[in-house]
């Protein structure tokens, strides 16, 4: 099994075999990060550009560390949307970057589909580090790696994803990933934040958090953007937290050994209570560690072979 792709744009386009390959490879890379010398020469002389149009310390740092542990040169470019020169199209930006001969561009953008467009414009590999409400494939892969590490499997698990599904790329990527590996996924959130036709992605949907939690093996809490309140997606943070926040009492509906994930950064006391976030079943920090391993695996699989002509 080989990954024969130029780009990683989303989980939607990956087969179960490809996902498994990435996870298996990531398991090998976990070991590298445990060494005293956390660096392998694999991608020596390769250049990775981290092109971030949205602020994200966590994801950018994770990609940067992954690239550096592979001995690639990582260059960070942060672009605030407002500073983009008017009249310069995405195509122009892409061609300019390409002229610097990078081997890979990691892109984060607030507009869904931008990584797809970029991938069409450049010959190097493109990794989607989150595009609007579309996909965040490396996050889903690290979530799956974390669950696989703790549970030993993905197949047959029950997964609940709770929160603002409408605006969540993490939810979409995880729905594709977990269902493709044989888990059953239920999403739950207020009706204002359950997008129409979400079931077509392969999950079940409910507005009842307790129903979603019932007998579940994995609980994934999504970060709620507090400013959504202004657009009346929910009336108050207090009411949102009461209905869709995770606390110990609600967690009792899940299986006793259920694990808890959160893509971070967490709003303590809003979507997740501190005692749950810091509790024994919380894998939030494991996620961060696995994030580096997964991204190393993705770099290796995309850049570790000659480009097909």
């Amino acid at each position: 099994m080989r990954l024969k792709r130029k780009d990683l744009l989303g989980i939607e386009e990956l087969s179960a075999e490809e996902i498994t390959l990435i996870l298996t490879t990531a398991e090998s890379f976990r070991e590298v990060s445990e060494r005293e010398i956390k660096k392998v020469p694999t991608l020596r002389g390769r250049t990775v550009i981290n092109l971030f149009y949205e602020p994200s310390t966590r994801t950018r740092t994770s990609f940067e560390i992954a690239a550096k542990r592979m001995s690639a040169d990582a260059v960070n470019i942060s672009v605030s949307a407002s500073s983009v020169v008017k009249g310069e199209t995405l195509k122009d930006t892409a061609r300019n970057l390409e002229a610097m001969r990078p081997d890979c561009i990691v892109i984060r953008h607030a507009s869904a589909g931008t990584p797809h467009m970029l991938a069409g414009y450049v010959g190097c590999s493109v990794i989607n580090a989150g595009d609007g409400a579309h996909e965040h494939p490396s996050q889903a892969l690290l979530d799956m790696l974390t669950v696989k590490e703790k549970k030993g499997r993905i197949e047959g698990l029950k997964v609940a994803i709770i929160g603002d599904i409408t605006h969540s790329r993490v939810a979409r990527s995880n729905i594709y990933g977990f269902t493709r590996l044989g888990a059953s996924v239920t999403v739950a959130g207020p009706p204002t934040m359950l997008p129409p036709g979400i079931e077509a992605l392969g999950c079940k949907a409910t507005t009842n958090m307790e129903a979603a939690l019932k007998d579940t093996d994995v609980v994934m809490m999504l970060r709620i953007q507090l400013e959504r309140q202004k657009e009346s997606f929910f009336p108050t943070i207090r009411e949102y937290s009461r209905l869709y926040g995770l606390n110990e009492e609600k967690l009792r509906k899940a299986k006793p050994d259920a694990v808890i994930l959160h893509p971070g950064p967490i709003n303590r006391g809003v979507e997740i209570s501190s005692e749950v976030a810091d509790g024994p079943y919380s894998l939030i920090l494991d996620q961060v560690t696995n994030g580096v391993a997964v991204r190393m695996a993705v770099f290796y699989l995309l850049l570790g072979a000659a480009r097909e002509e």
């Binding site: 490879t25 290796y300 000659a306 097909e308």
Partner: peptide, 14 residues
């Protein structure tokens, strides 16, 4: 991870 033919071979070695 220390091979000198990565990026030259058609497939990435597992």
């Amino acid at each position: 991870l220390y091979r000198d033919d990565l990026g030259i071979k058609k497939d990435q070695p597992p």
